[in-house]
């Protein structure tokens, strides 16, 4: 199996990902532990359940908020950005 890495972007900086890794795994490998702040207290959140059940790892990927970083595969040149609250502000939508 090839393990040649490729670059994704997290909040504008390059992060190396390997084929078959989720966005969460790639961020974790780069030392990133949180990529969302909560709606009420603004607390940092990142990976928790790892299997798509908890929705703690929600993140904005290529402008689309509320994606589960533990499920979405890392792909070359993805733009991953920290999600603030509902993520509505980032896309210009009204949120909810």
């Amino acid at each position: 199996m090839t393990t040649r890495g490729f670059a994704i972007h997290f909040d504008g900086r390059p992060v190396t990902a390997a084929p078959g890794q989720s966005v969460a795994a790639a961020l974790w490998a780069a030392g990133v532990r949180s990529w969302r702040t909560t709606r009420v207290s603004g607390a940092p959140r990142g990976l928790f359940c790892g299997v798509g059940a908890c929705f703690d790892c929600l993140v904005t990927i290529d402008g689309v908020p509320n994606q589960r970083a533990c499920l979405v595969p890392a792909r070359p040149n993805q733009a991953v950005t920290t999600q603030i609250g509902t993520g509505g502000d980032r896309t210009g939508s009204t949120g909810s």
Binding site: A18, G20, A25, A29, L47, F48, G50, C70
Partner: peptide, 14 residues
Amino acid sequence: LTPAAAQALHLAGV
């Protein structure tokens, strides 16, 4: 995180 998440990271080589 949960043990499953730790295991998933481990299997991803992280």
